[in-house]
Nucleic acid binder design. Sequence first.
RNA 1: GCUCCCUUCGUCUAGUGGUUAGGACACUGGCCUCUCACGCCGGUAACAGGGGUUCGAGUCCCCUAGGGAGCGCCA
Length: 471
Amino acid sequence: MPIKTRFAPSPTGYLHVGGARTALFSWLHARKHGGHFVLRIEDTDLERSTAESINAILEGMTWLGLEYDEGPFYQTDRLDRYNEVIDSLLEQGLAYRCNCTRERLDALREKQMQQKLKPRYDGHCRGAGVSGDEAHVIRFRNPLDGQVIVDDCVRGKVVFNNNELDDLIIRRTDGTPTYNLSVIVDDLDMEITYVIRGDDHLNNTPRQINILTALGKSPPHYAHVPMILGDDGSRLSKRHGAVSVIEYRNQGILPEALLNYLVRLGWSHGDQEIFTLDELVELFDINDVNRSASSFNNEKLLWLNQHYIKNDTPERIARLLSPHMGDLGIDPATGPDLVEVVTAQQERASTLVQMAQISAFFYRDFESFDEKAARKHLKAVALEPLGLVRERLSELADWQPEPLHELVKSVAGDLELKLGKVAQPLRVAVVGRAASPGIDVTLYLVGREACLRRIDMALQYIRLRGQGDDQ
RNA sequence: GCUCCCUUCGUCUAGUGGUUAGGACACUGGCCUCUCACGCCGGUAACAGGGGUUCGAGUCCCCUAGGGAGCGCCA
């Protein structure tokens, strides 16, 4: 049978980075073996499933580039099929009707907890012969003894005793199937050979295997991958910051950076840190995934992101950066070529949002000089070099980085100053801050008109400031 | 409480009985330098604890502790 994996999120929120990682592992496993990757939406919980959530998941998968070969399938389209399986289990006596009230179940659970027992159904209706005419659920008749061995690709063999399990509900009073039933029917019908999922499902697996066995089928291969924790060691959630992959996109993270980061959480290949998707398809092996949970570390993600920003073509980065400029109210068409701006900033930003922020000054005047930078560089001693630079800039014939570089150097030389004594005041005057790309490229991209205007602002700022105190 | 899982630098990890316990992020010292960044060179920092097995244990076994997950008419 050809290798087939699936990603089966329930549409009750956004595509979580933990989900994205299991999706990535499933996708890689399928790609590596020339198999298929299936997307299935587990929306049998009608109360909590939403269309927005489905869209968010599809959007996230598309952004990450985890394309699926089959689906998306929706479980709500397959209710008849689940009922067919449930009915056949019922007919064969492998399942039974139960009319226990929620009150009874709640009381039972409470009593068991008090007795320090594991809460579970007591089999009250197992032999009761509850009629189909009254309100009821269907329970699977779980074996009472023996054991189930889950042979897991990442955990190894895990043994569960049947006497720890109970008769789980497979059809609700309203007639809809529950998770443990629909999952195994889908995986069976869709011919899934590898179930790769979060290890929060490990405890469900013996129940699913028992149903499969009752149906006369053999289980697929399983791989339960460890969960992702927040930086405080608890389960990753909203309070740790971004958890939705779309949030990462909005923060200016590149999809390849997020994928590279996620794959290294629980998996490695020697000392290698950077992987192309092609390399991953070749090198990744689900059997090599770690057993222990790992903490999400945003700094390392930022480092990877900067790496990818640095090493991609300026053209692609510019295309991705453009909407983030828009977020700042800047239309890149109104100023210097965004590709040239990216080339100048590529090594200076770890996210696209940050790159937009540090590039805004190319497109519009800043509100005010950064105070610390101004205090250090916009002083009376800067009046002469700034004045001279201004004069020569206004006369410069060829407004290009090279001549601009020569110009700044010549001013420094003529005034017998170190280059920094000219470049830094000039930078603060033109940029508003003490940090920017090389002064020549900065002047070139800002353009003559804005440069002269901003230098005049700086000269005036120094003079006004000088009147006030001991400057 | 019960069942299952996990435990190497702060974090991600390498390590499959003999290593000065390696790499990466972060932190940090230096170099480069017109600033920031990049890059380069260096540094701090780990086998949870206790018992075994063995000539020898991060590696194998047991116990303890700590952490996580599950125990729903959620998935």
